[in-house]
Amino acid sequence: MITAQPKIGLFVTCLVDLFRPTVGFSALKLLEEAGCTVEVPVQTCCGQPAYNTGDRATARTLAQQVITAFESFDYVVAPSGSCAGMIKCHYPSLFEINSGWRVRAEQLSTKTFELTSFLTDVLGLEQANVDYAGTVTYHDSCSGLRELGVKTQPRRLLGTVAGLELREMEESEVCCGFGGTFCVKYPELSNRMVSDKVAHILATGADTLLAGDLGCLLNIAGKLQRDGVAIKVRHVAEVLAGLTGVPAVGEAEGGE
């Protein structure tokens, strides 16, 4: 049920907080324009690094922190398929079946969404009233795609952005090689995967790469820039919110 003005707890994500605040403000803008009341509860990280390293105790503590801070909202929205997937698909499994925390985790799970999925699937948004002069290609982030089914939602909205042309790359569904701690634990493998991704991006001739997860974006932007390729990298929310005045990921202030 959508209340007249749903109250959203914005899960900013730790990467956006540190590396790309614009993504958080883009999410805020999109949600407010769609008629939501948005708050930013106390938060640090969803706990995925601990969870995927096998440290369930720390993951559980951080999950409890998030559950406590966000359970009073109508919805939890994150500009990330990875973090939203952690809350939605993995939090319940951290707690004993039938325990109080399990029930609370399951309740939070049902109302947690990735941003573009929330805007389209829940709020029914069909039109992004912005323009973007550029040819973009879209990378499907693994968790958003396979855990949450985010595939058509960002593309539908991008299709309504004036001036924007979307050119699909080969293997848009194959991992970019970020993988959280994977990219520093196995840098050579990660480098190979992101190099393949970069080759597919280049083959499209697009001038902008978009995705819905900052981890992938930092990885791909870092590789493009190391290779000296002038393709702009942005989070899909920045384009949909029209907040593209700031330099693209990894670009210097005032310089292309």
Binding site: R20, E188, N191, V194, N219, G222, K223, V249
Partner: peptide, 9 residues
């Protein structure tokens, strides 16, 4: 070793 690290703005 393999890529730049985009800096926080």
């Amino acid at each position: 070793a393999w890529r730049d690290l985009p800096a926080p703005p």
